[in-house]
Amino acid sequence: MWVLSVNSLSKNFGGIKAIRNINVNIEKGNIIGLIGPNGAGKTTFFNLLTGIYSPTSGEITYNLDSKIRTKDLKPHKIVHYGIARTFQNIRLFKDMTVLDNILIGFHNRFKYGIGSAFLRLPSYYKAEANAYENALELLEKFNLLDKKDELAKNLPYGDQRKLEIARALAAKPKLLLLDEPAAGMNPIETKELRELINWIREAFDLTIILIEHDMSLVMNICDEVLVFDYGNLVAQGTPEEIQNDERVIKAYLGEEVEEC
């Protein structure tokens, strides 16, 4: 069953064609790797998927709880549809505690109104206590429980990445978009991250799309790899197929020049 279908998607910024005519279907439960040289359009593709940009042409369709079409994609609504993302340059709420960061992840699950907040009606206490417990549970799973009262900006880099993923998972997504989760990590941290991603896929029943430059990570955990180059989808296949694909080698290393 597919969860995401992209049909002839294009995005232009003035004269720059950042994304050109992309067609792809994403199957449920897979981990999809998105690779390509810098400026290939990977993050633009994510921003299109999450409604931050609207496409110049083409159609994005999600098949989650309900069918979601391009025109319904608004950045603040995608979480509601079951899509959550992290960012290339970590975007935590730096001056809020780790716990409060997670609680923002629960935002769209709260229902009580402003009056309830002002008057502290029972619905306030019930919802807040419930979210608090869920947040602690989530933090425990990510080994961040003992740091719950620290400000997010004071966490070490690896923990900040983890917290951002935990925050995204708090929204109970079905599809998780990770933008360079291993950026800036050392090999040991990357290995931990690999285990973490595998684990959250099972534990939270997720479909994951990740942009990554670290080939050891991509080739080890992805079921399928998409290769972008100059806004085009140049190759698609299993990691083994991709590693031997001429177009991919060309995109990364350039063409072989015939000797004179």
């Binding site: 603040h76 959550a84 993302r85 975007r91 730096k94 935002h107 925050r167 929204a171």
Partner: peptide
């Protein structure tokens, strides 16, 4: 703290 992140977490900014 971060408008884009808030929006992506479902906050109608």
């Amino acid at each position: 703290e971060d408008e884009i992140a808030a929006e992506s977490m479902g906050v109608n900014t």
